[in-house]
Nucleic acid binder design. Sequence first.
DNA 1: TAGATTGTTAATCGATTAACAATC
DNA 2: TAGATTGTTAATCGATTAACAATC
Lengths: 219, 219
Amino acid sequence: MSGQYRDYPKHLIRKLPRYYRYLNEQKQFGKEYISSNELASLMGISPSQVRQDFNRFLYNGYHGVGYNVSAILEQITELLDLKTKKNTIIIGAGNLGQSLSNYDELKNCGFEIKAFFDINPRLAGAVINGIKVCDMEWLEEYIKAENIVAAILALPTEGTSEIARKISEYGVTMFLNFNPVFFEFERDVFIENVHIDDNLMMLSYKGAHKGAGERDDEE
Amino acid sequence: MSGQYRDYPKHLIRKLPRYYRYLNEQKQFGKEYISSNELASLMGISPSQVRQDFNRFLYNGYHGVGYNVSAILEQITELLDLKTKKNTIIIGAGNLGQSLSNYDELKNCGFEIKAFFDINPRLAGAVINGIKVCDMEWLEEYIKAENIVAAILALPTEGTSEIARKISEYGVTMFLNFNPVFFEFERDVFIENVHIDDNLMMLSYKGAHKGAGERDDEE
DNA sequence: TAGATTGTTAATCGATTAACAATC
DNA sequence: TAGATTGTTAATCGATTAACAATC
């Protein structure tokens, strides 16, 4: 948002959520300043790496003291645009959709759930976790009227890609997708796929190779 | 499983699930052989990279023809140990737990859900998606008797780390965790954390920087 | 054989580490 | 000031790309 961004290497951006998590944890513990050494050893990376990364685009280090935890968190928040409110709908009011609707991180990242939509017309009118369920029929109208910019795709695989396309035409540009589906859009539409299958495969691998792996740096 | 593994760089292992997804998709389409060029362009990486990776540890390329899709998939399956059956329980029979219980990839990766466990004793005895819900009281006995090796932590954040520790003492070595919790174990215990918050943050970033990013290579 | 595509070596690029002078 | 830790440059390491000879 504010001002122009230098173009940060995608590579560094990808690391930000991890930094965010650890710094946030430290903040909860009441830590105000943290040294590259401390943070690095918590995260299982090298102090050099922390300093390089922070220096490249986060500027709150103090010689002899460390980095200001809150200030860095602020900067990451700004960079990832987490403060901007993003009106969001969940497509699919089943178990997955419901469990996501009270997932705290949504709010922390600025995604505000405005409504469920479900193919089952009988659900229309219901209220789940304080969020109303709407009939698919109202998708277009609702998206436009309520300025919906993001959608969480929590419906069965089959319908997913068709509905995503439709929704994107109504103006939604951000998608969080839980289905193993491949789509591509021409315009400025962004998809994040949650690949639980990747996690499962890695877990299977790790389990089969006990002892083989040293420390894992993916926390 | 079979034979001894060379120690594959973690780096390459991490890429396998992605290769798996794309190759599997091609297999569904009936594709028998695929060239490094085709696969690379599907995945948004370079043909060189595909050849390097495959050559390092997957050996089913044919000069002038391409790679045998099924054979490569087999090898990845073997490497990640996806065929080995892993008796699994889900802790938490709420929305998340329920939605996971019929997640197809579980079976594909060898994780077989044997039971739910829930802190709410009133759920004990219920059957969800054909899987019974047990009282926490039976955890130890059940894990030992049924040779449970994996657990999916789908309960509220608070209880997670305590229960994980307990379960690991009963012999479970693989954890799929959905909560933003940090743990460490001394022994050969492996955790995969599903970081939906990372996905949300990246989505927020992408949405805020339209046009800035070229092609994204994380599908 | 001609055409295609791999396997593999060498060259490039980028990220991580090491080291230390600058500074609070 | 002495101690600590950053900021930053240079050295290392590793991954990606380019190129082409080997081969089906």
